[in-house]
């Protein structure tokens, strides 16, 4: 059995978290609160580190005065916490964040996710894979075609599209189960390997 305090704490927290599967209990609730507190503490420490290296040191130690602009914009986000009269201060940094974020994302999304994906779907129908990809995309798109009354052909194609979507959901769900089982394996490996040394490492 492990003699490390860290491993013991990890093991007890894991067992406490798993105990919820049996029934909600005090141990689970305690661990839930500790987890939230620890996660918040970690985020604060990372935030502090970022403030120190990205704002305080450049401004105070290195004399980069332009850093004062993002620092002020950041402080303006806290305005509403000092009374509703200061709630307007949040609008300007938020507008900037949303504007810059949208600009960076939309520009790349159009090129990388729309144009290049369209180009890569225009495949020569020489292999079964290519035929399946092209037919699957067209059938799926036809399923979401709502602009006019569906004809018999469109209904038939959109029915194929529905099946393509359902098969995709099935594959995604299978992968989801596989991923969740991996998480269980990780915890079981920790409990019976690192903690009580039943599994050979």
């Amino acid at each position: 059995m492990s003699t490390s305090i860290v491993t013991w704490v990890g093991a007890l927290v894991t067992i406490g978290a798993f105990s919820y599967l049996f029934k909600e209990n005090v141990m689970y609730r305690t661990i839930e609160h500790i987890y939230v507190g620890a996660a918040a503490g970690y985020v604060i420490s990372v935030g502090y580190q970022n403030l120190l290296t990205k704002a305080w040191r450049p401004l105070v130690n290195e004399g980069h005065w332009l850093v004062i602009i993002p620092v002020l914009l950041g402080l303006m986000l806290f305005g509403p916490y000092f009374g509703s009269k200061l709630s307007w201060t949040r609008r300007y940094p938020l507008s900037l964040i949303i504007g810059v974020g949208a600009g960076i994302t939309i520009r790349s999304a159009v090129i990388e996710q729309l144009t290049k994906q369209l180009a890569s779907t225009a495949l020569p129908l020489k292999t079964i894979n290519n035929v399946l990809i092209v037919a699957g995309v067209l059938a799926t798109l036809s399923y979401f075609f709502f602009t006019f009354k569906p004809t018999r052909t469109l209904t038939g194609v959109s029915e194929v599209g529905k099946w393509v979507i359902m098969i995709t959901f099935g594959a995604a769900f299978g992968n989801a189960i596989m991923g969740r089982v991996s998480l269980v394996i990780g915890r079981v490996s920790f409990l019976f390997g690192e903690w009580i040394h039943l599994i050979k490492q």
């Binding site: 995709t168 992968n175 991996s182």
Partner: peptide, 15 residues
């Protein structure tokens, strides 16, 4: 992670 991998496969096909 396994859950999100199918969504990434079209990007592999498009290189």
């Amino acid at each position: 992670i396994t859950v999100t991998a199918p969504q990434a496969e079209p990007f592999l096909q498009s290189k």
